[in-house]
Amino acid sequence: MENVVWIFVSAMVVNNFTLFYFLGLCPFMGVSARVSTALRMGAADIFVLVVTSVCTWILNTFVLAYAPYLRLISFIVVIASVVQIVEMVIKKVSPRLFRELGMFLPLITTNCAILYLAIFQTNRGYGFFEGLAFAVGAGAGLTLALVLMASIRQETEFSSIPAVARGAALVFIIAGALSLAFMGFAGLLSAT
């Protein structure tokens, strides 16, 4: 139980996927203009991560033990199908959310955070519940970073920023500051 909590906190703040491992930067740049969109994107991320984690566990336990060289290929196929299914479900259940997420949903396939989760989970030999905790923690971390970034960007909209710093350059410098702040969590739990 302690282990599971540790994995959750570690994935969420200490080794935050976006700010520590640089994963999922494309949505981080693209969707972080508004807090409301950032929240929805985060929710979709958490969902896909959890489903991927479960699928990875099934694959690792029952299939890949016999064919380890197929790992990468089978992971990417699973992720692509999961995203496709999530897309269809959201379209059916909430067409409004589907419209708002728009093109970002298919982009989750090429969101490196998802594949990294699958690889990481395998390399560390996480069990079912540890994998779940890792997925939820990682998703919560992605959401946290997205929402923080979106709130800062909303504030900067009305500030007078020099023309050369507008756009991506500013986002990266803010991200650097956020990342610096998150490094403060490193002492929260001593790494193994």
Binding site: F20, F22, F172, I173, A175, G176
Partner: peptide
């Protein structure tokens, strides 16, 4: 060489390139 440095380095490269373009 730590993560924040990556963000800052890219941010400042982009600033420099924007400035050069301008």
């Amino acid at each position: 060489i730590l993560p924040p440095g990556g963000f800052l380095t890219l941010g400042f490269w982009l600033l420099l390139l924007n400035w050069f373009q301008k």
